[in-house]
Every structure is written in C-alpha cells, then in structure tokens.
C-alpha cells in the first residue's frame, strides 16, 4: 500500500481535542494517586475509566475536572477562544471555567445537589449563575429539564431529600446539564442504585450525551456500563494506565494481564 491514498490523519473529524491530559501525576505524600496519565478526548467522545478500588480513578477525574491540582503534568481544555491550562489559571478564572464549561456528576447526589433547595431551584440556580434573571424563563427551562430526566414537573417545589436515590441522581444530572457544559465528568453515576433504576439512568445518560453532543469522562467499576456508554476505555491499576483503546476491543480482546483478569471475572 503506497502512502499516496493512505491518509492516517482524520482530516474530516474535529480538528482539536476538547481535553488533553498530559503526563498527569498526583501524589498523596509518598503514596501514588495516579501516575503519568496521558490521553486526548475529542468532542462528542465518551471515555470510560475502569479499574479496581484504589487504582486512582477518582484521583485522576478530580484532576481532570479542575477540582484538585496534579503534582505534575498538565490538563489542557479547549475553550471557545483557545486552549487553556486548567491548573495554571488563577483560582477565580478556574472556578469560572468550571462553572461555565465543565460539569461534574458525583456518585453521591448529596455532593452535587443542594438538599435544602427545591428541585426546580436546584436546576434554576445554575441558570441564574449564568446570568439569567427572567423568572418565567428560568422556570420554563427548569420544567423542561425535569421532564427530560423524567421527573414530573409537579415535583418541582419538593426538596430533593424527599426523592428516591434514582430521582436524586436524575435531578443532579439535570442540574449539571442545564448550564450547557461542553465536557462532563461522572464518578460512578449509577453506583448505589438498584439494577432496574440503573438501567433507566443509563438509557437516559446515553441519549443525553448523544443528543447534546457533549464529551464525557465516566468512572465506573461496571464493565457493562462501560460497554453501553463509552466509546473508549482506559484501564487503571495502581495509579497507572495499563491499557487503553476502543471500548469493545479492550473488553473483547484485552491485551494486558490485568484487563484479562477483569474481563474474565464477569460476562460482558
């Protein structure tokens, strides 16, 4: 095959990654949180991170999402007007970037919701953060988002503490997505829910990610969840990435000993 008609670069695809993770390491004293992690995430892509407990998934996610600074390495986000080094930004600008362009769905909805504010308020508040002041419009958008995550608008004025776990999680997702982030991070978004509730949530997430064309990074220990939601998969062990690639390839033809162990333990 000559090089002539063989172009490996993907000219037709998006020109630049939305997120670039460059040799990210985070240490907790002597202990490794995550070490030397590198990848690029492109618009519309969903990246999964799997690995055993303590392998550094949450540590990495928190660095990517701007919550914790890496000990070394850089996290580059492609903002509307150019690339920014997330952790080199002054604190107020980093906070502003996170509010405007990044979304974080926590495993425990309590960490992502204001439990003493009504369901509608939880969603509407994020619009006000973005400068929306018109009460009627805020209410309309909040109602629309509650519908999208299948919460009846009649529950608008109820406090999330009176919601089931699955509803709280759906409300958190609405609160995150209403402000139109370009990149969403989720740490075990279906953890702690029963299987039937999980299925519903997964289906919802799958459709939202596709319809809104956002990029996402999802940490999960559940390989079936990874298979359903992600395009690419990264496998971590002891803080390192041992394997990454196309999700179905990593799951069906794992190359690394650890990934083989992980995939042989469950039927995916």
């Amino acid at each position: 095959m000559s090089g002539m008609d063989m172009l490996r670069d993907a000219a037709a695809l998006a020109p630049s990654p939305v997120l670039e993770c460059d040799a990210v390491t985070r240490m907790y004293g002597e202990r490794i949180g995550c070490r030397n992690v590198g990848f690029r995430l492109w618009p519309g892509e969903v990246l999964g991170i799997v690995g055993e407990s303590g392998s550094g998934k949450s540590t990495l996610l928190r660095c990517l999402a701007g919550l914790d600074a890496p000990t070394s390495g850089r996290v580059i986000f492609q903002d509307e007007d150019g690339a920014v080094d997330v952790h080199a930004l002054p604190e107020p600008r980093r906070r502003a970037l996170m509010r405007r362009a990044l979304g974080i769905v926590h495993q425990n909805p309590r960490d992502g919701l204001r439990m003493d504010v009504s369901a509608g308020g939880n969603v509407g508040e994020r619009l006000m953060d973005r400068g929306e002041r018109h009460y009627g419009r805020i209410r309309d958008v909040a109602v629309d988002w509650l519908r999208r995550v299948e919460i009846s608008p009649e529950r608008m004025d109820d406090l999330p503490r009176h919601f089931s776990g699955g509803m709280q999680q759906r409300l958190q997702i609405a609160r995150v997505l209403v402000s139109g982030p370009r990149l969403v991070f989720m740490d075990e978004p279906t953890g702690g829910l029963d299987v039937s509730v999980q299925a519903k949530l997964l289906d919802l997430l799958r459709n939202l990610v596709r319809d809104l064309d956002i990029a996402a990074v999802i940490v999960t220990h559940d390989l079936a969840v990874a298979r359903l939601l992600t395009d690419r998969l990264m496998v971590m062990k002891d803080g390192h990435v041992v394997e990454q690639g196309l999700t179905d390839q990593v799951l069906d033809d794992p190359q690394h000993a650890y990934t083989q162990l992980l995939t042989s333990a469950v039927l995916v």
Partner: peptide
C-alpha cells in the same frame, strides 16, 4: 492502526 475515533467514524 487507526485511532479509536477514526475506527468509530
């Protein structure tokens, strides 16, 4: 040898 996003495309 293509990268994942290209295979998906």
């Amino acid at each position: 040898s293509a990268d994942p996003r290209e295979v998906l495309e």
